[in-house]
Design a protein around this nucleic acid. Structure first.
Lengths: 149, 149
DNA sequence: TGACTTAGACAGATTCTCTTACCATTATTA
DNA sequence: TAATAATGGTAAGAGAATCTGTCTAAGTCA
């Protein structure tokens, strides 16, 4: 992660990170203000990848790019805090599905509102056309940077 | 960090994170292959923000968004591994400047080449115009997402 | 000079993450 | 069908990264 000699010309990835971090902080902040102050960033990164009908630990681990053990550890915490529940997977007796619980749903709504608000700010700052292009570019980039999904 | 209901329409920040992570992994991989396998991601994130003429711990902490203690801890490790050195700051006897040492310079060159290669891949995938727009958008976004610099 | 601030380090605890090892279930195959 | 391999998940333990609190030394300013 070296820096360009020319200051102000950071590499694309670092620029991505700065934006990402800003959003994460805002979401965590608003969650805390809404009474969900016990969610950590690591928990949030796993939580954000749960499908509406539930997701297996193994898949969550893959998506969040952590080991199964780490994903299980974070899901344990989310479960104890009431954000998710584990139910047996009807299609495979070995597996369990992590589903979003009531408290998790409430937190999702708060987070979603913040995300929308921050995206609106970004769109306002960039201009509509530029923001749309940004999303398109990042989505296309995902084709070669995200091995999952 | 909630996910959109519509799959495939992840929020902008998550898209940023995916790209960032891909670059970080590639750089760390190539560094390891070049004999710099002892650098961790956290160390790299601090290292990447050292100015050519050296930077104070406090500033590094601010830029990397960690506490001074964490920055000092990571710089300790980088120093022991020979990537950086600490020298007294001639302008302030309390402060010390973290500077890139020989080994760090060599690693910087490897990382720089990887970054350039990955950016070239991205540019190729997106097309030149789109890649330029992406950089412009992210740079402008930095104005409202990066409190430092 | 004295009060306050800033730069940095040390100690300790917590959180996150990994590796290794293991169990249960499912899939494969001889 | 029985043995073997692969998959989903957990457990234990260690290491890495991070924080809060506290401390010293040095600079700033009234």
């Amino acid at each position: 992660m070296a820096e360009d000699d020319d200051p102000g010309e950071l590499n694309l990835a670092l620029l991505c990170f700065i934006a990402y971090r800003a959003m994460e902080n805002r979401v965590l902040e608003d969650l805390a203000a809404a009474g969900f102050g016990d969610v950590t960033a690591a928990q949030g990164r796993v939580f954000a990848r749960i499908d509406p009908d539930g997701t297996r630990i193994t898949d969550l681990a893959e998506r969040a790019q952590v080991t199964k053990q780490t994903a299980g550890f974070l899901v344990d915490q989310l479960e104890r805090a009431g954000y998710v529940r584990r139910v047996p997977d009807p299609r495979d007796a070995r597996a369990r599905l992590v589903q979003i619980a009531e408290r998790g749903q409430a937190a999702t709504e708060v987070a979603g509102r913040t995300e929308a608000a921050v995206e609106a700010e970004w769109t306002h700052h960039l201009g509509r056309a530029s923001a749309v292009q940004l999303r398109q570019a990042l989505t296309r980039l995902r084709e070669i940077t995200d091995p999952y999904r």
